[in-house]
Nucleic acid binder design. Structure first.
Length: 1148
RNA sequence: GCGCGCGUAGCUCAGUUGGUUAGAGCGCCACCCUGAUAAGGUGGAGGUCCCUGGUUCGAGUCCAGGCGCGCGCACCA
């Protein structure tokens, strides 16, 4: 006896029971133990941050991350799943600041770094509970208890090791970088943060004259015109850039005849237009002719001091260190003047100009000119505006330039400009800051080589988004002037400035004269709950200093910075084990990952940080050696790809409106709400089967709801059908066999009453063939990470079971006799049960990685129920099914598809003629397409089935097809195209006009036919090169499909009409039984009252059929007493049906 | 602006090296079944495959250029 099943499943409730079962029985752990020692399937968890609430996108990621480990485990591999949490970084600090009601660095320091760090560490776990709940609820099996945590000491120390290696190899250096700087907040913003803050604003756009100097340094009447939208950068001007190949012209404006100006030729006319004046072109130069000229900068703040000072180049000649025309590729004529004002302090390209210039000089290098302080105000070096915020000086600066006759033109310029995303009135500025970098650009080719070996899904990521990103690699700006992060493990000599990197806390303590640990110890005494891990964090770590090896009596002190938290997560492949300080075995066996998956935003994030770190530390070019830190540690193999081989890049999840999901727009439902209403399996199936994973996916409740009936509900209905009748018939697999194994085909073969497949009905053979073909397809797809195709195959299988196998097997399930091998057993019925049982248990296993809860519920009831300990106690402890290829039968699959199409075409033909299926018809004829000619005999032998499906009296393959159809010979373009090329259209015409019958004849007699083309040439064509299309002629009740044409006889005899009416009446009685709420075994007495002689005769003639179909024990042609009564219209004849339940006589 | 992706039925999406009649689900309309039954099934209508050009015997598919959307990078003197 199976547990009775409700018709309408309550999936969320079922899932809760299953989850409890897994937990109490420790199934996840057992699924691992089961595979210990087997081939490993290595999975890396990209650490989410528990500092924010999980949202629907995380559900998708977690579902995909669960699918493949589950699948591989069932396939016999050992897949450990270690959870992890990303805990560092600005977002955490921001959360804390919000709760404290502060936001600037000054306020943080005022609050105190120590308590601030404590709050950060607590804040990290703010939504921990929600994350753990979601993880379990969605069925993501991962070991949360052993999670790696990026702020833990062992993790931090692994990161330190990596950084110290890089430092020792000269790959970690300090340099300057132009960053987007938030002056009021005193911090740089990450590109992601900057991206959020762009706004369209109107800035002043000024065309400024830079007067050229003659050989003696005297101002001439000729000026360059430079264009800028940031007048505040003009005092810091250092160069003017032109493009060598561009043509520049010397012009005179009609409204300003005193001066001559130089600008790019293509832009001269438009500037004149803007000035509403005319120009005269005096001369033209190539850009390269201008290079080297000196000019007077618009402000003299630096000029007056140092003037146009010269310095010696490496080639021995002299050049001014500033205010000189240089050549640059990035100059364009898209806007401006073709002459670019260069202020290296305030732009990345500008800064690179300065760097390039410095390369040219021998020893006295061009300085970085900058008269702006980090707080965004002018310094003393620009006395006229000292202390004022630069952005507010644009107007006054412009006025100043105009008063000195240097303003050529001014206008408003609309463009996007970034503001601080947290203080949206604060504009950001580009500003130089000292920063630590990793020399990743040296490893660009290495990273590309590594990347080329990775299996990216979708493929275009490799060469596209990710490849491009690597191509444009710049050194990794690693340091952050913040508080909550992995401290940069570099200690600097206070005397000499020489630095060294530290690879672990113990190594630090082992340094001569190390002191300062007591600061943390004291804090621990004051607050015993303080996390030990904070020992390696600010401010405690900053207190640890030691004797300098570089200078007697000097101390080594740590630099103040922490690092980019992306480095943390990228170091996860080894840092999760604390390697190389510990965890050597784990790292060896769990590297590289076979599989990772995250959303597309991680191309710049975790995908990159992992690849970069791995390439630098473990690539063939690497000279890193962990053994210097820990003699027991072994470096991993170097061959690419690492640290991951296969990566599914998920599309972004969009809200209901197709836009970005946003809390404030409320355009999506909380995951918990969806899970409570539809269940995790519904959500998972929607993710897996709804679209290829890399598509962006619109997360809408409606789509999720609609995905349920198509697969889960259909499967559930088949399951519940089986349970209902198996219980009625007492079908008990456990009574039939001792060793059920995992209930796969081979084990079932031993069952009593389980007949060999070849002895069973064709329907069973077909069903099992489909089952095993689907199994094969799913395994192939999942092995190549294509779960979308696998899900489609599974869905088709369920459709086949539900809509063909069960439908066509109903009679067997309802037949008399028992479902066993006893004397009164019915072997056909037994077959039906065994087949459906095999299909259900195997389908459940096929579905297990996709919908782990429902499939477990099936297994518990279908397998564990009857067999107890004889079978694995959970479906997730079984092996994934493998196809029994002997059972796959492509011919039968084709034939069954044919008969399903015939039935469907027959119904289409009926519908066309408005002949409902209840109306019996005399005949159906089928004309098979040539491709299915060979199945004619097979189809004929299934006449009964066709007749039954279509409610017709007889079936035949049409003997005179030409009555009903015409044939058209079409060229098989795929075959003829390559052979005939341009002649193809002619051939096509010729075939269209040719006599199809004659051609077919010719094919049959000569094996080929010759057609004469319009151009007079002849072409021979074989039958294989043609397709013969069959079209139904007008005037018949016919429908055509790809496999043939089905013709229904629409002729109605009085006898057929009578039968139709009887069926109509039976239908009415059945409906009435239902409205009266009779049980389906209740007997009735029936009375028919009608004025129509014709109808009464028909009913009388088929009284037996009516009785058996409706379970009527008596049928009279008068009112039945005390009966339910209903009058209806049968083809224009009024009929009153009276119906009464017959109380069965007491049986003693 | 540059790069990547996307644009197919009312909606959500498939469409496998270019090939003859472009598919599914939902919704809609009509119907069937009434022993899976507050289920299930069938049929139908519905398409300028974003636009324009090109390559080709042949383009939803390949190429170029637009337009629109999403994402990433950069923001431009």
């Amino acid at each position: 006896m199976f547990q009775p099943v409700r018709g309408r499943p309550d999936l969320p409730a079922t899932e809760a029971e299953i989850a409890a079962l897994w937990k109490s029985a420790g199934i996840y752990q057992k699924s691992l133990d089961n595979r210990r020692g087997a081939k490993r399937f290595v999975f890396f968890e990209g650490p989410p941050t528990a500092n924010g609430m999980p949202h629907p996108g995380h559900c998708l990621t977690r579902a995909i991350k669960d699918l493949y480990p589950r699948y591989r485990t069932m396939r016999g591999e050992f897949c450990e799943r270690k959870a992890g949490w990303d805990t560092h970084g600005l977002p955490v600090e921001v959360e804390v600041c919000k709760s404290l009601g502060i936001h600037s660095k000054a306020e943080i320091e005022e609050y105190g770094i120590e308590p601030f760090i404590h709050r950060c560490q607590e804040s990290v776990w703010r939504y921990m509970k929600e994350w753990e709940t979601l993880t379990e609820r969605i069925g993501f099996w991962i070991d949360l208890s052993q999670a790696y945590v990026t702020y833990h000491q062992s993790y931090v120390e692994s990161v330190w090791w990596a950084l110290s290696e890089l430092f020792n190899r000269g790959l970690l250096y300090q340099g300057h970088k132009i960053v987007w700087w938030w002056p009021q907040g005193g911090t740089a913003l990450s590109s992601g943060e900057v991206g959020q803050g762009y706004r369209q604003v109107a800035d002043p756009s000024v065309y400024v004259a830079f007067p050229l100097l003659d050989a003696n340094g005297a101002v001439t009447k000729r000026s360059l015109i430079a264009w800028t939208t940031t007048p505040w950068t003009l005092p810091s001007n250092q160069f003017a850039a032109v493009k060598s190949e561009l043509t520049y012209v010397v012009v005179r404006f009609q409204d300003d005849p005193e001066h001559e100006y130089i600008l790019a030729e293509p832009l001269a006319a438009s500037l004149a237009e803007k000035k509403k004046t005319k120009i005269e072109i005096l001369e033209s130069y190539r850009g390269s002719d201008l290079v080297g000229m000196s000019y007077e900068p618009p402000f003299d703040c630096f000029y007056s001091n140092s003037g146009p000072r010269d310095a010696t180049l490496k080639n021995g000649t002299n050049e001014p260190v500033a205010w000189r025309v240089i050549e640059a590729d990035f100059v364009t004529t898209d806007s401006g003047t073709g002459i670019v004002h260069i202020a290296p302090a305030f732009g990345e390209v500008d800064y690179s100009v300065l760097m390039a210039e410095r390369e040219r000089f021998e020893n006295e290098l061009p300085p970085l000119i900058n008269c702006v302080a980090p707080d965004g105000t002018f310094t003393d070096e620009f006395p006229s505006m000292t202390g004022r915020f630069v952005k507010e000086c644009d107007r006054d600066l412009t006025r100043d330039i105009r008063s000195r006759g240097l303003l050529v033109h001014q206008e408003q310029y609309l463009h996007d400009y970034p503001f601080c995303w947290r203080a949206d009135n604060d504009p950001l500025i580009q500003y130089p800051r000292a920063s630590w970098f990793i020399r990743t650009s040296n490893f660009r080719d290495e990273m590309l080589a590594n990347n080329s070996q990775i299996n990216w899904m979708p493929e275009h990521i490799k060469e596209g988004r990710f490849g491009n990103f690597l191509e444009n690699n710049v050194d990794w700006a690693l340091s952050r002037e913040r508080y909550w992060g992995t401290p940069l493990p570099i200690w600097v000599c206070e005397d000499t400035g020489k630095a060294e990197a530290i690879s672990s806390y113990d190594a630090l303590l082992a340094k001569p004269g190390a002191t300062g640990t007591e600061v943390f110890d004291q804090a621990k005494v004051d607050n015993p709950d303080l996390s030990e891990d904070l020992r390696v964090h600010k401010p405690y770590i900053d207190a640890v200093t030691y004797d300098s090896p570089f200078s007697a009596h000097a101390r080594m002190r740590r630099v103040p910075e922490v690092i980019d938290c992306w480095f943390d997560s990228g170091a996860m492949p080894f840092a999760q084990w604390g390697w190389p300080h510990e965890g050597g075995k784990d790292f060896q066996s769990q590297w590289p990952a076979d599989f990772i998956s995250e959303a597309i935003d991680q191309t710049r994030g975790w995908f990159y940080s992992q690849l970069a770190i791995s390439t630098l530390l473990f690539g063939p070019e690497s000279t890193s050696d962990a053994a210097t830190t820990n003699a027991a540690a072994e470096m991993p193999p170097k061959d690419y790809p690492h640290p991951f081989r296969n990566c599914i890049v998920l599309g972004h999840m969009l809200g209901e409106d197709g836009g970005k999901m946003s809390k404030s727009k409320r355009n999506y439902k909380e995951p918990s709400e969806i899970l409570d209403r539809y269940g995790a399996d519904a959500l998972r199936w929607y993710f897996f089967a709804g679209q290829p994973p890399w598509n962006s996916i619109r997360y809408s409740e409606q789509s999720i709801r609609e995905s349920v009936p198509e697969f889960l509900l259909r499967l559930w209905n088949v399951y519940s059908f089986f349970i209902i009748y198996a219980n009625i018939d007492g079908f008990n697999p456990a009574a039939a066999m001792n060793d059920p194994g995992q209930l796969d085909h081979a084990s079932l073969t031993a069952g009593n009453g389980f007949r060999p497949v070849h002895e069973r009905s064709e329907l069973d053979r077909w069903m099992l063939a489909e089952l095993h073909a689907t199994t094969q397809k799913m395994v192939d797809s999942l092995d190549s990470y294509d779960h979308y195709v696998a899900a489609g195959a599974l869905s088709d299988l369920v459709d086949a079971v539900s809509n063909w196998f069960v439908r066509r097997s109903r009679d067997r399930f309802w037949a008399t006799g028992k479902a066993d091998i006893s004397a009164d057993g019915n072997p056909e019925k037994c077959d039906a049960y065994w087949t459906l049982y095999e299909v259900l248990t195997t389908t459940a296993r096929l579905a297990a990685p996709f919908v782990p809860f429902v499939s477990e519920a099936f297994w518990q009831n279908l397998a564990v129920g009857p067999f107890g300990n004889g079978v694995p106690e959970s479906i997730h402890l079984t092996d994934y099914p493998t196809a029994n290829t002997d059972l796959i039968d492509p011919d039968l699959a084709r034939q069954m598809a044919l008969i399903r199409e015939v039935a469907s075409l027959g119904r289409a033909a009926r519908a066309q003629e408005k002949l409902k299926v209840r109306q019996p018809l005399s005949k159906v004829e089928v004309i098979l397409a040539d491709s299915h000619k060979n199945d004619a005999d097979w189809l004929t032998s299934h006449a009964d089935l066709v007749c039954d499906e279509l409610n017709v009296k007889s079936f035949e393959i049409c003997a005179e097809p030409d009555r009903y159809i015409t044939r058209t010979i079409l060229p098989d373009l795929k075959k003829l195209g390559p052979r005939l090329g341009k002649k193809l259209p002619l051939v096509r015409n010729a075939l269209q006009q040719a006599d199809a019958a004659a051609l077919i004849n010719s094919f049959h007699e000569d094996g080929l036919a010759t057609v004469t083309l319009q151009d007079g040439t002849d072409v021979s064509i074989t039958e294989e090169e043609c397709l013969i299309r069959t079209t139904a002629r007008e005037g018949w009740a016919a429908a055509e499909g790809t496999r043939g044409v089905v013709v229904i006889s629409s002729e109605l005899t009085p006898e057929l009409i009578a039968e139709g009416r009887v069926r109509e009446v039976i239908h009415a009685v059945q409906s009435q039984r239902k409205t009266v709420d009779l049980d389906f075994t209740d007997r009735i007495s029936l009375g028919f009252v009608t004025e129509s002689e014709e109808l009464r005769e028909a009913l009388q003639k088929h009284v037996k059929t009516i009785a058996s179909e409706t379970l009527a024990v008596s049928i009279s042609f008068e009112h039945v007493e005390d009966a339910e009564e209903e009058t209806l219209d049968i083809d224009g004849h009024a009929l009153t049906i009276t119906l009464n339940r017959v109380v069965p006589p007491e049986t003693s």
